[in-house]
């Protein structure tokens, strides 16, 4: 493979990488695990890039790689309290591909909804996700109860979910 083709591969990969991460993090709520899987998926894609047909969409190809890695990840989990069964991962992967267009629309609507997020909530969410901490240590560092942070995160996600629904329903997508 020539360098220019590699460069082309990387360019297309960069366009798809947020979608790849979105897919993995949707199935794996633990951020550290999701990041490792994301990196592993990226590396796997790179190593087998010769098999990628440049005429085709890259997102489904990447998500196929990720689906296998996520299923393998859950098979290795010892705790049964936070696992998705391999067949469920498979079904979710299939459905994700079927609903890809809708999910992309929702992602665009989310851009607008994030802009509407009140500053205080936005700051808390930014700090939480940027901190790389568990919710327990983050709560402690912020001087808040774990319950309060749980509630806030839940409210923010639900508010964004409903905002996306409303944006799409009213046809307000910019």
């Amino acid at each position: 493979m020539t360098s220019s083709r590699d460069d082309q591969f990387i360019e297309r990969y960069v366009e798809c990488q947020s979608g790849l991460y979105r897919f993995i993090a949707t199935l794996v709520p633990n951020r550290a695990d999701a990041e490792e899987l994301f990196q592993e998926a990226s590396l796997t894609a790179w190593k087998i890039r010769d098999r990628f047909d440049c005429q085709r969409e890259m997102s489904p190809w990447l998500c196929g790689i990720a689906r296998n890695l996520v299923a393998a990840h859950y098979r290795k989990q010892k705790s049964l309290a936070l696992t998705l069964d391999p067949d469920v991962v498979e079904r979710l992967g299939q459905q994700q591909m079927e609903e890809d267009a809708v999910l992309r629309e929702r992602a665009r609507a989310l851009n607008q909804c994030l802009e509407k997020l009140p500053d205080r909530q936005r700051d808390l969410v930014r700090h939480y996700y940027h901190s790389d901490q568990t919710i327990q240590s983050f709560s402690q560092a912020q001087g808040l109860s774990v319950e309060a942070v749980y509630k806030t995160m839940q409210r923010v996600r639900m508010a964004l979910f409903e905002c996306i629904n409303q944006t799409l329903k009213r046809g307000e997508l910019a």
Binding site: I24, T26, L27, R31, A34, E35, L43, Y129, L160, F161
Partner: peptide, 27 residues
């Protein structure tokens, strides 16, 4: 789950430590 989870994923992507270079670093 896919719709709701993608919000969690997006927030992690948007506000979390940059992942883009990490993945390129693998390359």
């Amino acid at each position: 789950l896919l719709a709701y989870g993608s919000i969690h994923a997006r927030l992690a992507w948007e506000f979390g430590p940059t992942l883009a270079e990490k993945s390129l670093a693998q390359f």
